[in-house]
Design a protein around this nucleic acid. Structure first.
Lengths: 304, 304
DNA sequence: CCTTTCACG
DNA sequence: CGTGCAAGG
């Protein structure tokens, strides 16, 4: 474990799902890490993590990204819910792990210490942009786009529909379609990778207690249909699911009921990729043994 | 030390005062604790402590009052800045140390988790009352009065004049005179003891850096004159100062500059008593070795 | 439950 | 610096 305060018996091997279908299998990161690529295969390793407050993570953890970098040796790291303020970004940048000197941050300007995303990269990208380019959706620091030679990568923190589903209509009627259109627009020039906390467990396999959460933010039928319609049906591939069709794996466990100990979680974090590069995905995987947040990181290895 | 997380070299023996006068001596609680009373002398031991949030102290400390009670064996304990809410008082009462079952609490109703005072007693008092009896001054839970056979005891948390001295005029024009009048009224029937955080360092000897704090809340000339006029000149005796005229001793050290380690403090907590019982004071003293708050407790031994 | 801001000291 | 609140998840 990295940054582990408590240790517990490999809970990710527990199939906690309420009504598992025949054939479903629990995710075990020890056995399901990506297979080594043949020597010399050109590839990129991307990781994504909703850190639920970067400052707290750094306090807990020295420099988490250092440990993660050491162990995982990623090329690109995407962070969500940094809860950073613009004024503190420079100080954090100074503490970045050597070899990852390029980083791109966006913070909420409407609510301080809320939301916030970042992309940390080993190599200099071609271009960077922040937000969707729509004033209304861009005050909360929810999206960073970075352009590399072979693809765009989008780091997104999709709005939570909130207590009482107060923000459900904004989410499914405004945000999701806007993000989708933005991605289709980018896709005209090159393939797109969307990663981050998409705040939706797509299907029953993606959540511990589907029946009990039909009106919970992140598993409403509206969000699930929006996910299908705006992303999957428009040609973006859920890489974890396509590589592990029957695997029960979560990326989020609420703090509230100690769900991580019993693997009562949700899969909310994704790598979606343009169909055109779906066959380049060597593996899409989950790192539930990395603690320090209510989400765990996820990883993607893409052959180039 | 009780509840000590960090230990440091008896900082209270350091005379940190900026410009000490000749003859001033540092306070050393090891040598300046009250002398034992002759066997069988009827007396009462009262303690007072601004705990700066009782819940945090209890978390840190199991039940601080238990430790303090064990070591100091007080009869009455007065607490200020409990930061309690009415709804949580019953739960705290349950955790009171055996032998101290009577307790009287008042909480701020205007601002939750703000201010708040309490008196915990070994024996049942004759009567209890809350506040000054003036609507305007009584929404912040700053005063508890308990009547015993031989005296009234008032536990007060005097309003801080605040950042920018925003509340200085309220403090010196409203609160101090009201409290003073209330005390004079009570005094008609029996002697009065006022204890608590009076939020004023009376003289230069009572503060580490007098010159630098002439416009700081707690050491403005207005507050010092109000203290003199409303309390001392009206016949209430500053028992610590009358027993230790040349002793430099503080009861508060700001968290902000780690002042406790270097004994850069203020004397803000007092036992004032009616002149009529001033000669009954066996000792008035300070317990700087008790940590867990930015204030330390103070003690009074009164012969009956 | 846990992390952020904010008011207050 | 540290406590307690409130909002957010």
């Amino acid at each position: 474990e990295i940054a582990g305060v408590e240790t517990f018996e490999e809970p990710w091997t527990v199939l906690a799902h309420k009504k598992p279908q025949p054939g479903w299998i629990p995710y075990n990161p020890r056995t399901m890490r990506p297979a080594p690529l043949p020597d010399g295969t050109d590839h990129v390793k991307i990781m994504s993590w909703n850190v639920n407050g970067l400052r707290a993570l750094l306090k807990l953890n020295g420099l988490c990204t250092l440990e993660l970098a050491k162990r995982e040796n990623f090329d690109i790291l995407c962070l969500q819910e940094t809860k950073m303020q613009d004024k503190d970004v420079e100080e954090i940048k100074k503490r970045l792990t050597e070899g990852y000197d390029d980083s791109f941050w966006t913070c909420s300007v409407s609510k301080l210490g809320y939301s916030g995303t970042a992309i940390i990269s080993r190599t200099k990208p071609i271009s960077v942009s922040y937000g969707l380019g729509i004033e209304d959706h861009d005050s909360e620091g929810r999206l960073v786009t970075v352009e590399f030679d072979k693809f765009y990568i989008l780091c997104a923190y999709v709005p939570n529909s909130g207590e009482g589903l107060k923000r459900l209509s904004y989410r499914v009627e405004q945000w999701d379609p806007s993000l989708s259109s933005y991605m289709k627009e980018l896709e005209k020039s090159k393939p797109v990778i969307l990663t981050g906390d998409l705040n939706c467990a797509h299907e029953e396999i993606d959540i511990y207690n589907p029946a009990g959460n039909k009106r919970s933010a992140g598993f409403t039928i509206e969000e699930r249909e929006s996910f299908q319609k705006n992303f999957l049906s428009r040609g973006f591939v859920d890489t974890f699911r396509s590589h592990h069709p029957d695997t029960v794996a979560y990326t989020y466990w609420g703090y509230r009921h100690g769900g991580r100990k019993t693997n009562k979680g949700w899969r909310l974090d994704y790598f979606l990729v343009s169909e055109s590069i779906a066959d380049k995905v060597h593996d899409s995987y989950i790192l539930p043994d990395v603690v320090g947040s209510d989400h765990c990181p996820i990883g993607l290895v893409l052959k180039l």
